[in-house]
């Protein structure tokens, strides 16, 4: 069987001033259509680099990223990214920010009215239709991130890439957004890869958790399947044995076997 997304023996090294530093070594991973995969690891392990490689924002040093058996090495709207700091354009309103993406991706295939409906549908999906005429500076951090998600979804991507999307948010807002992402994933079945450093978040949202070893030359240490049925509810899961077992497995990996060594930084 051929995988939807395949990371085929990927190496990544950065050359800076004659010094070459290996960031990622021999990353092998296949992801099925509709799967929700989290990548977790200590800071500096190269997980954001890995996401940028999949997005095509940085080029691989060796190996290849294959999406539906085709190599991708440059960015495109079929691999939409939700950035950690939302990256909305501050001079455009919420609606215009999404329209920038929709006009570019669907400018030929959809009529103006269809594009408008599509923008509003995606805003509804993240419950932000009420703020369509606001500028990013006028809405809260959580709302900005919702718009960022709507913009990514509006590109109708084959893969949704989330780069620590809730990292800059407070705990309550974060929980709301996690529920929103779960809801969207169950409705659209979008293949999703999420970078995170939050163990609970990874277990709650993912079908599989990819755990990275520490850098330099980080690689995939272990892949943990999360056999929890969906829809998942955070309150019920708090005492669920499978949830706790998965959580413990990730914690053990991160804090016993691959403890973060400050000196290595």
């Amino acid at each position: 069987m051929t995988a939807y997304l395949k990371l085929d023996h990927i190496d990544k090294s950065f050359a800076r001033g004659g010094q070459v530093s290996d960031v990622l070594r021999d990353i092998r991973l296949t992801i099925d259509k509709g799967e929700f995969v989290s990548i977790i690891g200590h800071s500096g392990c190269g997980k954001s680099t890995l996401l940028n490689l999949i997005a095509g924002l940085t080029k691989v040093s060796a190996g290849a990223v294959l999406l539906e058996d085709k190599e991708v090495d440059s960015p495109g709207p079929e691999r939409a990214v939700v950035f950690q700091n939302h990256s909305l354009l501050p001079w455009l309103t919420v609606y215009e920010n999404i329209n920038l993406a929709v006009a570019k991706v669907f400018g030929r295939s959809k009529s103006k009215a269809e594009r408008h409906d599509w923008i509003m549908r995606n805003l509804d999906l993240v419950q932000m239709a009420h703020a369509r005429d606001k500028r990013p500076a006028e809405i809260s951090g959580g709302m900005k991130q919702r718009v960022g998600i709507a913009r990514a979804l509006a590109m109708e991507p084959k893969i949704l890439l989330l780069d620590e999307p809730f990292g800059a948010l407070d705990a309550l807002t974060r929980a709301h957004l996690q529920d929103a992402v779960m809801d969207i994933h169950s409705r659209l079945g979008s293949t999703t890869i999420m970078i995170t450093h939050d163990v609970d978040e990874a277990v709650l949202l993912s079908d599989r958790i990819v755990m990275m070893t520490n850098g330099p030359a980080a690689t995939i240490g272990e892949v943990l399947p999360v056999p929890l049925v969906r829809p998942r509810r955070r309150i019920e899961l708090a005492s669920d044995r499978t949830f706790l077992r998965c959580r413990e497995a990730v914690l053990k990996f991160l804090y016993e076997r691959h403890r973060f060594v400050e000196a290595a930084e």
């Binding site: 924002l57 440059s74 960015p75 495109g76 709207p77 990214v81 990256s87 920038l100 590109m155």
Partner: peptide, 11 residues
């Protein structure tokens, strides 16, 4: 970030 947005949209 703005440049990345532009690259993903292939502006």
């Amino acid at each position: 970030d703005y440049r990345n947005v532009a690259r993903i949209l292939r502006l």
